[in-house]
Nucleic acid binder design. Structure first.
Lengths: 268, 268
DNA sequence: CGCGTTCTTGACTAGCGTCAATGTGAGTGG
DNA sequence: CCACTCACATTGACGCTAGTCAAGAACGCG
């Protein structure tokens, strides 16, 4: 049985991958281009991430790009809103939030990204990132130079198709969030959120019913279009309904079917 | 895994479907005349639509696809949720809404499309349309076979880039809608909506301050995450504040600056 | 002309936001 | 090691925004 904390698995993998110049990475942290290069073909996330669905030759082509790896500390931004768009980023470990900021300072979390998920696709439209990406815990990413990826896509129709499909998936994801924000009440929103997290944890080999949330009540609230107090109250309500057991950020889904059926919706 | 790579099979199927039976589609749609083919190079919408930003040779390539035109009557669906994805559609005239439906019947309008705008990009993710597109008035569209477009993109990097950018733009658009739904009140929502419509009308050569809305109060409400009564009340409130003059679907923006400054936000 | 649909407006209410007090755990420094 | 702070979470009391229900007006359509 997998624990909810990703640390053990993560550590092993990271250790094997970073045989070479680890010190360099740590030393340079986030400043210069990172010295560690990554190969998709040997990555443990290849079935979740960019190369998913690609055949050997295409994955080899991706390998030739040698994506740079970079560590991002908790609270640090990987990129800011308005910053020049050059890379798309794949999460290797850790969790990120994507945030929009209004002129008056109001923030809106537009998504949470976990291992294997891509960030930054919104920057392509205007050449500038349309949102910021902030690490919710110490994290590691692959930086994928869009221009190189784009070149490669001219050679490989399959790769091109994969990229298009990933962008389309992001559109679909946002559709269901709009549904959530536009026509669901507080309990439905939180249930949908938890079920979504649950699925994604499961897809990554973790327990689908017990996990640590990496985001605060305020961040959940922003994402779901409600205030942090309402998030907290709704957690308590679920606990009283014997659907969950909650202790701060640790969540155990007691009645997954109950949660699913009571708030059945198009998921994903 | 396997389902993730539909490319080869899909292409064959779509290709065979494509050549002949488009006549059927049109005939079935509603007693339409023989299929009319369209050239991007001579289209009056070329600066707003797919070919925007492409050079002569690329536009010629698009011309070779000879997109079929189709009329869609008010209230008729161009495609339904769950329907097989084969085409993306460009609006030639008229207005559409994109709609998601929850199992319990609740609907969410995820967007309104005007002349020159594309629909159906969300279908690429899973090979099935993730939303339905319904005409709000008698309309005409170009049906763009995705498989052909995709083939063409392998020859032309610029075209490929344009497609990616259009998808990214859709992501950004949905971002700002999420901001709206997640953190704005009724007046801000309606103001943002009207300013957005205003801009798009202007880009199409119409007045930016006086126009007919093609959607009902209920549809606006669904899009903005509020009830139709609240939409109606907010229109009345704006009228009392001397920002608008409203008569049912006819809107005149009296104080565009007022509307803009009072509810300043990141637009598009 | 009557009918259905859409819009407007009013009265009332529920759900969520706001404000505030208290609890809790992690990190820090003496 | 403990006291302190700070950030975050929980809970209660209250208020307001927007939802609900309902009635009537305006319009288009057959």
């Amino acid at each position: 049985m997998q624990t909810a904390t990703p640390t053990p698995a993560e550590r092993t993998v990271t250790a094997t991958m970073q045989v070479l110049p680890r010190t360099l990475t740590v030393a340079r942290a986030d400043a210069a281009p990172a010295p560690i290069k990554t190969l998709c073909s040997t990555c443990h996330l290849k079935d979740l991430c960019l190369p998913c669905g690609l055949t050997g030759s295409d994955v080899e082509r991706l390998d030739s790009l040698m994506f740079a790896r970079r560590r991002v500390k908790e609270g640090q931004a990987l990129y800011h809103e308005g910053e020049k768009f050059q890379f798309i980023y794949a999460v290797r470990s850790g969790t990120f939030k994507s945030v929009l900021t209004l002129k008056d300072g109001r923030e809106q979390v537009t998504g949470f990204q976990m291992a294997g998920e891509l960030m930054g696709l919104d920057g392509l439209a205007s050449g500038k990132h349309a949102s910021a990406a902030v690490a919710l815990e110490d994290a590691e990413i692959c930086a994928i130079p869009y221009s190189h990826l784009s070149e490669l896509a001219t050679v490989s129709p399959d790769l091109q198709h994969v990229i298009s499909r990933l962008m389309s998936r992001e559109i679909v994801r946002e559709h269901s969030l709009m549904m959530l924000l536009g026509s669901m009440n507080a309990e439905e929103r939180l249930a949908a959120f938890l079920l979504n997290i649950s699925q994604r944890m499961k897809a990554r080999g973790y327990s689908a019913t017990e996990f640590h949330l990496r985001m605060s009540r305020a961040e959940i609230g922003s994402y779901l279009g409600m205030k942090l107090e309402t998030v907290s109250r709704t957690f308590s309500a679920f606990q009283q309904q014997r659907l969950l057991e909650v202790d701060k950020k640790h969540v155990r889904i007691v009645d997954l079917d109950g949660l699913t059926h009571a708030f059945e919706m198009r998921v994903q």
